[in-house]
Amino acid sequence: MRYFVAFFLFVFSLLDVQAQELRYKEIQGIAYSSSKDSYVQKQCLLDFYYPEDKKDFTTLIWFHGGGLTSGNRAIPERLKGGDFAVVSVGYRFAPQVRVEDIIKDGAEAISWVMKNIANYGGNTQKVVIGGYSAGAYLALMLALRKEYLAVHSVDADQLLGVISCSGQAITHFTERQSRHIRDTQPIVDEMAPLYWVRNTPFPIMLMTGDRELEMLGRYEENAYLARMLKLCGHKDVKLLEFQGYDHGMLTPALPLVVRQLKEWEALRLTNSNQKSESTKK
């Protein structure tokens, strides 16, 4: 165990040194949809921040919050300079479109990344999807319900991981409101990540604020999702609760997002090396 820890400390030290030496570029307002609809052209854009001098980098696709009715795409400053790329996704809002249409926007954005990231030096086998609040809900739906990405010939199971910061695990409240269902009436149907729980091959990190301060049972939803994933046989699910923080838990969560990305990247490197040695034998 001592050598195992030492190895990871060595890898992280190399990543930190490399991050200090890298140059980064940001491209804003990339259209990821070919639709000619004016609302799609306005909303379905992404910002792309990546290390120019690194090859085979990890990419985090980030979905913003706002209840699926508002918000702006943005790359959090705390996610910059970490030797990985960040893609911030804009999407359409309810009630102009249905919640399922918004999820499909997210799938199309992920498809753009998978088809284009290698042109900038990225690796399609090292893509993580995540987000905050409504954005975390989108990430969970897209990862757990494989059909959304399959439409674009993308296999959700090739993801490196999923990070959810205070996302809903039950049917999103905006979807429930469209059906005239009150906020305090929990529903788990096809529009809920919990409905699609399965033993995914990629790790999942769930984070929420304090259960006594969060929105409408947000911690308990995530705790139930974590439990059901484990009962399905999932071996790598983390559930973190930021005590003392309400729904605005993103500030303390972002450093852990960065650390988790580096851990997953290092673990994948280790696994790849082990497979390569095994093949040689």
Rank of each mutant, 00 (worst) to 15 (best):
Phe93His: 08
Arg23Pro: 01
Phe173Gln: 05
Tyr49Lys: 11
Ala150Arg: 05
Leu250Asn: 03
Pro95Lys: 07
Ala266Lys: 05
Tyr3Thr: 03
Leu213Ser: 02
Tyr24Pro: 01
Glu52Val: 14
Arg78Glu: 11
Gly233Tyr: 00
Arg2Ile: 09
Phe12Ala: 07
Leu256Ile: 15
Ala156Glu: 00
Asp47Leu: 01
Leu60Gln: 02
Pro193Ala: 08
Phe12Cys: 07
Leu79Cys: 06
Met207Cys: 14
Tyr91Lys: 03
Gln260Asn: 09
Asp189Pro: 00
Asp189Gln: 05
Ser153Asp: 10
Pro51Gly: 01
Thr279Ile: 07
Tyr137Asn: 10
Pro76Val: 13
Asp183Cys: 10
Leu149Val: 14
Ile163Lys: 09
Glu221His: 13
Ile110Leu: 02
Leu14His: 05
Leu256Pro: 00
Val154Pro: 02
Tyr224Asp: 11
Thr58Phe: 07
Thr200Ile: 12
Lys126Asn: 03
Gly135Ala: 08
Ala6Thr: 10
Gln168Val: 09
Asp105Phe: 02
Glu220Thr: 12
Gln260Ala: 04
Tyr50His: 04
Pro76Trp: 11
Ile163Trp: 03
Tyr49Ala: 10
His247Lys: 09
Gln274Asp: 06
Ile187Glu: 10
Lys104Leu: 15
Asp189Ala: 13
Gln243Tyr: 13
Phe242Lys: 12
Asp56Glu: 14
Ala118Glu: 12
Tyr224Trp: 14
Trp264Ile: 05
Gly209Pro: 00
Val188Asn: 11
Val258Thr: 11
Glu175Gln: 09
Val89Cys: 05
Leu14Asn: 13
Asn72Pro: 01
Trp112Ala: 04
Gln177Thr: 10
Ile170Glu: 08
Ile61Thr: 01
Leu240Met: 12
Ile187Gly: 04
Ile61Met: 01
Val188Gln: 12
Tyr137Asp: 00
Leu225Arg: 07
Ile181Val: 14
